[in-house]
Amino acid sequence: ATNIVGKVKWYNSTKNFGFIEQDNGGKDVFVHKSAVDAAGLHSLEEGQDVIFDLEEKQGKAYAVNLRIK
């Protein structure tokens, strides 16, 4: 899925991951530091509006192509 809109539920910059809540009511999506770095960001803030693509690997969904809304 592409261009999914959501809000950062939480992001832990020490542990380098967090979760994004989808605006469409879907399951929360894992986001890793690598996606944050690829977006040219240092971190994510709770409540921040983002747009992302959804990829699945080994049955787990995660956010890629992250951008600030």
Rank of each mutant, 00 (worst) to 15 (best):
A1C: 04
A1S: 07
A1G: 09
T2L: 10
T2I: 12
T2Q: 12
I4C: 04
I4M: 15
I4G: 05
V5R: 12
G6T: 01
G6L: 01
G6Y: 01
K7A: 12
K7T: 14
V8R: 00
V8T: 03
W10Y: 06
W10M: 12
W10K: 03
W10N: 03
W10H: 04
Y11E: 01
K15F: 10
N16C: 05
F17P: 00
G18W: 02
F19T: 02
F19L: 05
I20L: 07
I20T: 01
I20R: 00
I20H: 00
I20K: 00
E21G: 14
Q22A: 13
Q22T: 11
D23W: 07
N24G: 13
G25R: 05
G26Q: 11
G26I: 07
K27V: 10
D28M: 11
D28V: 08
D28F: 08
V29W: 07
V29A: 06
F30T: 02
V31N: 00
V31F: 07
H32Y: 08
H32I: 02
K33P: 02
K33L: 05
K33T: 05
S34C: 04
S34T: 09
V36G: 02
V36S: 02
A38K: 10
A38D: 14
A39D: 02
L41E: 08
H42G: 10
L44Q: 01
L44H: 01
E45H: 13
E45T: 12
E46V: 15
E46A: 11
E46Q: 14
G47S: 09
G47T: 05
Q48G: 05
Q48A: 06
D49Q: 09
D49Y: 14
I51D: 04
F52K: 00
D53A: 05
D53R: 03
E55I: 11
E55G: 07
E56N: 07
Q58L: 12
G59Y: 06
A61P: 13
Y62W: 12
Y62P: 01
A63F: 00
V64S: 09
V64L: 12
V64T: 11
L66E: 00
R67Q: 09
I68P: 08
K69E: 14
